[in-house]
Computed example of a mutant assay.
Amino acid sequence: MSKILEALKTRRSYYGISNESTISDDQIVDIVQEAVKHTPTSFNSQTSRAVVLLGEHHHKLWDITKEELRKITKSEEAFAATSEKMASFYNGYGTVLFFEDEQVIKGLQEQFAAYADNFPIWANQSNGMLQLVVWSALEEAGLGASLQHYNPLIDEEVKSTWNIPSHWKLIAQMPFGKPTMQPSEKQYQPVEDRVKVFNK
């Protein structure tokens, strides 16, 4: 089996992570930079953006998310479960934020009007590929991660806190750290029901 498929096979969602890393901060940054550089984009538009939060910056993100969720949670009982979930992310080592540059997308829409409606869709597809590349590379490095989506709830506070350009649209958040527990066994639908082959 190829290394790529092996990484995909072992990649899982880890919710039990610690404030430890199996690799250096420089190696983490290198993974994200290489993924952003080499993940394909439509028209080679290179619209994907990423922000790596480590140390107190990582903790700040999940404090922000917790407080934004507090504002919309209807009861203290419901918030207790939310708070516990936020703590699992907070306890990690870092977070990768994924964005799309809407300014570039708008420029492409103007330049190639016939495909205007497709560029936001293609950008999201590219961002999804980037997320998977980073996720699989972190897994291969011995780090556990999960993919979260607290946007647009936290968008404005994130942009303000880290001086993110206004035309960067937040797509997803990926907290990561050294795994402290194994995920449950994954169930698969029959692959024969999901893939059709015509070869004759």
Rank of each mutant, 00 (worst) to 15 (best):
residue 12 R to N: 11
residue 15 Y to E: 02
residue 16 G to Q: 09
residue 18 S to M: 00
residue 23 I to C: 09
residue 25 D to S: 12
residue 26 D to R: 13
residue 31 I to R: 07
residue 36 V to Q: 02
residue 36 V to D: 01
residue 37 K to Y: 05
residue 42 S to L: 02
residue 44 N to Y: 12
residue 49 R to N: 07
residue 50 A to I: 13
residue 51 V to Q: 14
residue 53 L to A: 07
residue 54 L to F: 05
residue 60 K to G: 08
residue 61 L to N: 00
residue 62 W to P: 09
residue 64 I to H: 05
residue 65 T to I: 14
residue 66 K to P: 06
residue 71 K to D: 08
residue 72 I to M: 13
residue 79 F to K: 08
residue 84 E to V: 02
residue 91 N to T: 11
residue 93 Y to N: 03
residue 94 G to H: 06
residue 97 L to P: 03
residue 98 F to W: 04
residue 98 F to Y: 15
residue 102 E to D: 14
residue 110 E to Y: 00
residue 111 Q to T: 12
residue 111 Q to N: 13
residue 113 A to C: 07
residue 116 A to Y: 03
residue 120 P to V: 09
residue 122 W to A: 03
residue 123 A to I: 01
residue 128 G to W: 01
residue 130 L to H: 06
residue 134 V to G: 01
residue 136 S to W: 03
residue 137 A to V: 01
residue 138 L to Y: 10
residue 143 L to Q: 15
residue 149 H to D: 05
residue 153 L to S: 04
residue 153 L to N: 01
residue 155 D to G: 00
residue 158 V to E: 03
residue 159 K to C: 00
residue 164 I to H: 00
residue 165 P to Y: 07
residue 175 P to N: 07
residue 181 M to Q: 02
residue 188 Y to W: 12
residue 189 Q to K: 15
residue 192 E to T: 15
residue 193 D to Y: 08
residue 196 K to C: 01
residue 197 V to Q: 09
residue 199 N to F: 15
residue 200 K to T: 02
